[in-house]
Simulated assay, not measured.
Amino acid sequence: MILIISDNNDRTTVEVIRWLVSLNKQFIVVNDDEFFEIVLNNKKFFLQSHRNSFFLDDIESIWYRRGGLQFKRLRYSNDSINIHMNETQHWLEDYVLKTLESKRHINKQSNSHVNKLLVLEYARKEGLDVPEYFLAENTDEVIPGKTITKSITGNPSLEHVSENTDGMLYTAIIDKKEKEQFFISFFQEKIEKDFEIRTFYFNGECFSMAIFSQNDDQTKTDFRKYNNKKPNRNVRYSLSNSLEKKIHSLMKKLNLNCGSLDFMKSGSKYYFLEVNPVGQFANVAYHCNYPLFQKIADYL
C-alpha cells in the first residue's frame, strides 16, 4: 500500500495519482484536514480518520508531498492525567512517524522545512556559488539599488491582505534606506542575471529548466510574480556534471532525496539561491516534457 500525504487539490499530487491508477496500484491520500486516532487492532497499530484507515504495517512506501500527518489526542477532565497522556500520545505519534519514514519514501515530514541560513552555509561548503548575504536590524550596510531582501523562511503567504485576497512575500530590491530599526531581516547582493534556473532533484537525478524572467519588468526580480498575459519563456537546460555533483552532495547533506532548487546564471557563474523540499515542479514537467510524475509513481 502507498501512502501519500498532501494538501487538498495539489495539482502535482493529482498527476502522480493518475499514473498510480494506470499502474493499478493501491494508495491512500491523506489531506491536511484529517486527524488520525492511533488504536490497536489485533495488537497492530491502526490509524483511522473520518476519511481513511490503515494498518501501519500495510504501508510499503510513502510520499510526503505537503501538509502532514496530524493526530487527534484524547483529553481528560483531570489536568494531571492530561499531562501524562499528552506525553504518552506524543511518543506514540513519534513512533508512527519514524516507522513510516523508515520505509521506502520520498522526503520526510520531519525535515520538510529547511533552515535557509543553514542551507546557504552548507551550499558554500559544497562549493556552490552563493550571492553575498547578511542579517541586519537596520539598513546601514545596505547599498540601495544593489541589495535585495527576502524572507528568512521559505515562501510565506499572507492571509486576507485585502478583502477575500491573500498575498505572498516576494523578493524586493531595496531602493532607499530606512530611518528606523526593525526585526532581524535577510539581505543579499543583487545579481544581474542572464536567466534563472529551476532544478528538480529526485534520487540523484537533476531535471532543469531555464526561465527567461529578466526580459519582463514584472518578473525580473522574482519570477513568481507570474505574468499570465505574457508568460516567461521556459526551456530545458542541462547543468554541468560538476554542478550536478555539488547539488547531489548538498541534498545528501540535507538528507533530502527530492526537492526544487533555484539558481541564477550570471556570466560564467551559477548562483545558488535556495532549495524547497516541497516546491512545485509541475511547471518543470509540463514545459520541458520531463516524465517526473511517472518517475515518482514508479518509485512508489
Rank of each mutant, 00 (worst) to 15 (best):
residue 114 V to F: 05
residue 203 N to F: 09
residue 28 I to K: 04
residue 151 S to Y: 10
residue 156 P to G: 12
residue 114 V to G: 03
residue 234 N to H: 08
residue 156 P to F: 09
residue 128 L to F: 08
residue 108 K to Y: 04
residue 151 S to H: 11
residue 110 S to R: 07
residue 155 N to G: 03
residue 122 Y to I: 04
residue 49 S to M: 12
residue 44 K to S: 09
residue 27 F to M: 08
residue 70 Q to Y: 09
residue 291 P to D: 07
residue 99 T to F: 12
residue 211 I to F: 08
residue 117 L to I: 14
residue 199 T to P: 09
residue 96 V to K: 03
residue 161 V to F: 14
residue 10 D to I: 03
residue 128 L to E: 10
residue 22 S to C: 03
residue 58 D to H: 15
residue 24 N to F: 03
residue 169 L to I: 15
residue 31 N to Y: 13
residue 87 E to I: 08
residue 253 K to R: 14
residue 10 D to P: 02
residue 225 K to I: 07
residue 28 I to G: 03
residue 156 P to K: 10
residue 180 E to L: 12
residue 121 E to I: 14
residue 189 E to I: 10
residue 103 K to W: 05
residue 216 D to G: 11
residue 155 N to L: 03
residue 140 D to S: 15
residue 26 Q to V: 06
residue 15 E to F: 06
residue 253 K to H: 07
residue 176 K to P: 00
residue 15 E to P: 01
residue 52 N to V: 14
residue 73 R to W: 00
residue 139 T to Q: 06
residue 271 Y to E: 07
residue 204 G to R: 07
residue 298 D to R: 05
residue 173 I to H: 03
residue 169 L to T: 11
residue 69 L to A: 06
residue 235 V to C: 05
residue 149 T to H: 07
residue 154 G to W: 07
residue 155 N to P: 03
residue 48 Q to Y: 10
residue 114 V to E: 06
residue 4 I to F: 01
residue 245 K to E: 10
residue 175 D to T: 12
residue 191 I to G: 00
residue 218 Q to E: 09
residue 225 K to F: 05
residue 143 I to Y: 13
residue 31 N to E: 15
residue 80 S to H: 14
residue 32 D to H: 11
residue 81 I to R: 05
residue 90 H to I: 01
residue 71 F to G: 00
residue 175 D to W: 02
residue 82 N to H: 15
residue 36 F to K: 01
residue 34 E to Q: 14
residue 171 T to I: 10
residue 106 I to M: 07
residue 208 S to Q: 05
residue 129 D to K: 04
residue 22 S to D: 05
residue 194 D to R: 11
residue 41 N to S: 05
residue 104 R to C: 09
residue 239 L to N: 02
residue 142 V to L: 08
residue 147 T to R: 02
residue 127 G to Y: 07
residue 264 M to N: 02
residue 269 K to V: 04
residue 105 H to N: 14
residue 109 Q to E: 14
residue 268 S to Y: 14
residue 44 K to C: 04
residue 121 E to S: 13
residue 258 C to E: 00
residue 84 H to L: 15
residue 252 K to E: 14
residue 3 L to V: 11
residue 129 D to Q: 09
residue 210 A to L: 08
residue 85 M to H: 08
residue 172 A to F: 06
residue 238 S to L: 14
residue 78 N to H: 15
residue 7 D to P: 07
residue 281 F to Q: 02
residue 116 K to A: 10
residue 18 R to K: 13
residue 190 K to P: 01
residue 272 F to M: 06
residue 90 H to L: 12
residue 164 N to V: 11
residue 23 L to K: 12
